[in-house]
């Protein structure tokens, strides 16, 4: 079985082609939208996608050395994400499905991050920590679904460090040689400042931390390195603390880190220190598949399609706020 998957939820238009035996990845092509300044402008990103899409799909088919006729089904991320961006991927997927008469498989972007992490690390039944630009969630599988044990009450962890980096002039670029600029700056700091640490039950809140960190920066009284150090210490510790609660509560013995922020070395160290208390192992999705990509959509689409999950073309509409705990997962028990 061969599945083509399309990702277009935020800044990446990605097409992946996978099959149901190893090596499972046949093609992985991506086009990244990089804003000239500020954060993602959804409409600009969507225009960029529209101009790149045909090229990316063509390249993917070439890389896989197959023709569109060899594809069994088209998978597409219908959400969650930015509306204009999502619509590009959805439109193309619907067009391919109806023109070439292929089944269409709806994929939840968050579920796809989890599934590619499980596939590539071999973790069996972990507490999953999904940390990205738009998402911060502590997840565990239970009774047919991925359940959310804790999450951010406001902005995501990736959003916190990206916005901070941008506002204080550290970014763009946000990542240099695989290291986030805030991580890089924090490595040179050592002094813990007084910034708020906000954990409410199982949930975290970052917006107060962002505001306070920026205020500290604007006074000019503190070294930027120390602000970065404190911001990182507090933000990461908050996430590790709620993950610890989920691990203790579920009695699972694995932790899996997925999403773009998972690449942070310091974050991984903290998770390892925590997991040691419970004799649990820590798995991290490889950096290339921690960020948005088409392969994870194709892979999740393959799992879903094998269990009969398909959607009629006319019903394949995007859902900007589609939560992962709304999705039935028939391929796990």
């Amino acid at each position: 079985m061969i599945i083509l998957g399309i990702e277009s939820t935020a800044h990446t238009f990605g097409v992946g082609i996978v099959r149901d035996k190893d090596p499972f990845i046949l093609a992985d092509v991506r086009a990244n939208y990089v804003p000239k300044e500020g954060g993602i402008h959804p409409r600009e990103a969507s225009r960029f996608f529209a101009t790149k899409a045909h090229e990316v799909i063509k390249q993917a088919l070439e890389q896989a050395r197959i023709s569109i006729n060899d594809i069994d089904a088209i998978a597409v991320a219908l959400g969650p994400g930015l509306g204009p961006c999502l619509r590009v991927g959805a439109t193309i997927a619907r067009a391919l499905a109806s023109f070439f008469n292929k089944p269409l498989v709806p994929v939840n972007h968050s579920v796809a991050h989890v599934e590619i992490g499980l596939k590539l690390t071999g973790a069996r039944d972990p507490v999953i920590v999904y940390l990205a630009g738009g998402n911060t969630m502590i997840i565990a599988f239970n009774d047919k679904r991925y359940r959310v044990f804790g999450e951010t009450l406001d902005i995501a962890l990736g959003n916190l460090i990206d916005v901070f980096a941008r506002e204080v002039g550290l970014a763009p670029p946000y990542v240099r040689k695989g290291v986030h600029v805030v991580d890089e700056c924090a490595d040179k700091g050592s002094k813990l400042l007084d910034l708020p640490y906000i954990v409410k039950g199982q949930d975290v809140s970052f917006s107060g931390l962002l505001t306070a960190a920026l205020k500290h920066y604007k006074t000019g009284k503190y070294r930027l390195e120390d602000i970065c150090y404190t911001l990182r210490e507090i933000a990461y510790s908050m996430v590790v603390e709620v993950s610890e609660r989920a691990l203790a509560h579920t009695s699972k013995n694995e932790v899996l880190l997925v999403g773009g922020v998972a690449a942070s070395r310091r974050l991984q160290e903290k998770f390892k220190l925590m997991a040691k208390i419970y004799d649990a192992s820590v798995h991290v999705v490889p950096p290339r598949y921690a960020v948005d990509n088409g392969v994870m959509i194709a892979w999740t689409g393959l799992l879903a399609y094998k269990h009969g999950v398909v959607i009629p073309v006319e019903k394949a509409v995007v859902r900007q706020r589609w939560r992962l705990d709304e999705v039935e997962i028939p391929w796990r028990s």
């Binding site: 813990l192 640490y197 210490e233 507090i234 510790s237 903290k270 040691k276 208390i277």
Partner: peptide
Amino acid sequence: PKPYRDPLLDRRI
């Protein structure tokens, strides 16, 4: 005490 927190932060929390 939590080994994954900065010692000062840990004490403060």
